[in-house]
Design a protein around this nucleic acid. Structure first.
Lengths: 134, 134
DNA sequence: GCCAAAATTGACTTTTACGTAAATTCCTTT
DNA sequence: AAAGGAATTTACGTAAAAGTCAATTTTGGC
């Protein structure tokens, strides 16, 4: 069993499940939701590098706590090449909103990290007091 | 109707719902899950400043995409003052894990922000080409 | 061309994180 | 004391995001 498909241009669904640690059901679910559109050979899905990047992007969104709907929204922003003025304005506004959310999350993370670090430090101090090695 | 309870030491549940933009159901749910333990006057919950801080912490965890179970775990790390060596080691290890997760999230955010910024820039450029003001 | 392994589909189930509604109780205001 | 307004409890409901299972294909290797 080779690591890549024979034609070596496409990924199989199981290759992706292994690489990203998700189930086939999950990937098919994303396809049902219209987030990914792998091509088919017969009924079998073939994932191009671009599909793989898309999956990676989706999972990153999930790690950040975004819902499928929100991820779909963000994806639309990338695809959308709106020539029309109103659409462009709308896009810029939505990007601003998302950026705001992300920046809030980043602040949340910084704060939580600082707190965790202080607990860790206290624990290490305590261990030192006990004469315990790390 | 005053903004604070009469005794001015406790917050009522509705004060907190307004401050944090969550429902009473949500706060009671967190209590059911053992995350918060407000005191009672009769059956009515009274939230101390520490309860309020706890709620704020929980909601920050939620924004970061942590589940209730994960938040409970993190909270345990703060409370736990383990005198015992093995427990201390375990705590330090779990803190490391959480820090790893958070740092991953931070990287995810940076990457997503960069991408969004580039889309925004492209849009603004396009608008300038169209002779459209911001 | 056959056959096991891999992939697909569809239906149903599960988990999480609350929402909602009804009945009840407590407090206060008139 | 009657009424009205919060707060509570209990119980059931639900949407999102998959997991699980069974019944077919499909495919690739020999």
């Amino acid at each position: 069993m080779a690591a890549r498909s024979e034609i070596n241009e496409y990924f199989t669904i199981t290759e992706l499940t292994k690489e990203f640690g998700v189930s086939t059901r999950t990937i098919r679910f994303y396809e049902d939701e219209g987030l990914i559109n792998p091509v088919r050979r017969g009924r079998t899905r073939l994932f191009r590098p671009s599909d793989r990047r898309l999956l990676s992007f989706i999972l990153r969104g999930k790690r950040l706590g975004f819902s499928i709907a929100e991820i779909r929204e963000i994806l639309l922003m990338y695809k959308e090449p709106p020539g029309e003025e109103g659409q462009l304005r709308l896009l810029v506004r939505r990007i601003h909103e998302k950026r705001g959310e992300l920046e809030q999350k980043r602040r949340d993370i910084e704060e939580t990290l600082r707190e965790l670090e202080s607990v860790e430090e206290a624990s290490l101090t305590r261990m030192a007091e006990l004469g315990v090695g790390t």
